[in-house]
Amino acid sequence: MQYVIVGIGGQGILFTSRVLGHIALSRGERVVGSEVHGMAQRGGSVISHFKVGDYSSPMVKAKDADVLLAFDQNEAVRNLHFLKQGGHAIINTHDPAFIENPSLRKWMSDHGVTVHTVMGYDILKREMGGRFLFLNVLILGAMCGAGVGNVTIEEVREAVKVLAPAKFVEDNVKAVDLGYAGASR
């Protein structure tokens, strides 16, 4: 299973792969992935790679990813090429019109790629006082809601309970469930 996670520095992307890693390890699977730290982290485009299974390299090659998790729809478009034939993208969306772009539509149908959108900002604004830092777990919930990614919503909830700071566990679980309910299938 190969995941690519993209977004903007400061959105808390690193926590998402930590959750996936925790789940894989508790299943006894091997993991390897790559993160971005340093200057590149400051508000710019960031990308994390995460692979579960018998891999050596921490990086996902273009056209190899099973799932693209995008914290930002623009970053999603820039990184869709990582998806393999038949792959799935989970995209936090602020302006759903982008999906109607004809070139994008054509690429998606040529490559059998399915896009699942979740209006993460709207949901967090409405349900959690605009605390956008919970996007990182909301998007995992959305992935489960879309029925892809090879992890269950229960596994995500349990991992988040272990990994989140104690005083934010409840909020994190809530965000996971909001993502689960809010994802397009």
């Binding site: 903007i8 520095g9 400061g10 200057m39 590149a40 982290q41 400051r42 508000g43 710019g44 485009s45 623009n74 970053e75 478009v77 820039r78 982008f98 772009n101 070139s103 994008l104 690429w107």
Partner: peptide
Amino acid sequence: AAEDLNITPRPPMLC
């Protein structure tokens, strides 16, 4: 698609 939608890589910025 990226051109149509005006999407360019985000350079790093001060927080």
